[in-house]
């Protein structure tokens, strides 16, 4: 589903290279965890894939179901099934959460040549999915993320994911700022979305999220490259030993 080959990317402003020949293959139905020390390029990877401005890709390719996404406008990447759950979801004052969701959904449908979803269908969908994530009516009516707690913001990201039904979900440090209860709710939300035709890339610094979202494959990212790949046990090993070994390997 996702195929990244020899990806090099730098920060536009100062030309600092962050990703240095990254390779990654994720198949449909799989959950891949990407772990690594601070500054390894974990968030940069998620930003480059989603198309955030401020980065320059200098080499390599990234395709989603065989289609090159790096040249695509970020809105079109979303319509093609890519979803990034942000580490720090932003607040948009004055724009109702429902309004935002509906605008996003219908933009994507339009870009794919599908008709708009009717309001009753949309309301039904939102009500069902919001219920699963313990998102209240009040949160749906309030402006996007404004005054939400850290846990509410992350739950809201998962709600967007559930409504937009992407093919590839990238979770950028979704566990940061969550207490254990919130972590459970968010993880259950993610697990409920697992399916044979959807893939997940879970970026995290800590192993604890992986107790709740069980990965099929674990990668270690260091200095802009994948330096080790293994099964779920690799995460436990990292938890015990830390990242010190890998910093050396990549050097």
């Amino acid at each position: 589903m996702l195929e990244i080959k020899n990806l090099h990317a730098e920060i536009e402003a100062d030309g600092r290279e962050i990703l240095r020949g990254l390779d990654l293959t994720v198949k449909a139905g799989e959950v891949h965890a990407i772990m690594g020390p601070n500054g390894a390029g974990k968030s940069t990877l998620s930003h480059v894939l989603a198309g955030k401005p401020g980065y320059r890709v200098t080499q390599g390719t990234a395709t989603l179901d065989g289609v090159d996404i790096l040249e695509m406008d970020p809105a079109l990447r979303a319509a093609n099934g890519l979803f990034l759950a942000f580490q720090y979801p932003v607040e948009i004052p004055g724009v109702g959460n429902m309004t935002f969701l509906k605008a996003a959904l219908n933009s994507q449908r339009k870009a794919r040549g599908e008709g708009e979803m009717s309001t009753p269908d949309f309301m039904r969908l939102v009500r069902t999915e919001a219920g699963k994530l313990k998102i209240t009516q009040d949160m749906l009516k309030r402006p996007v993320n404004v005054g939400f707690s850290g846990g509410e913001k992350k739950r809201n990201e998962i709600l967007q994911m559930a409504i937009l039904q992407p093919k590839l979900c990238i979770l950028d440090e979704t566990d940061s700022g969550l207490d254990i209860d919130a972590l459970k709710v968010v993880s259950e939300g993610v697990n409920a979305l697992r399916s044979p035709d959807r893939a997940f890339v879970v970026i995290t610094h800590y192993q604890r999220l992986l107790d709740h979202i069980r990965p099929d494959v674990v990668h270690v990212l260091s200095k802009g490259r994948i330096v080790k790949t293994g099964g779920p046990d690799l995460a436990l090993e990292l938890e015990a030993k830390g990242y010190a070994d890998f910093a050396d390997e990549a050097a």
Partner: peptide, 14 residues
């Protein structure tokens, strides 16, 4: 902010 704008765009809004 660029962040607000990117957040909306990344959800599919032109």
């Amino acid at each position: 902010s660029d962040d607000q704008l990117f957040y909306c765009i990344s959800r599919g809004l032109p």
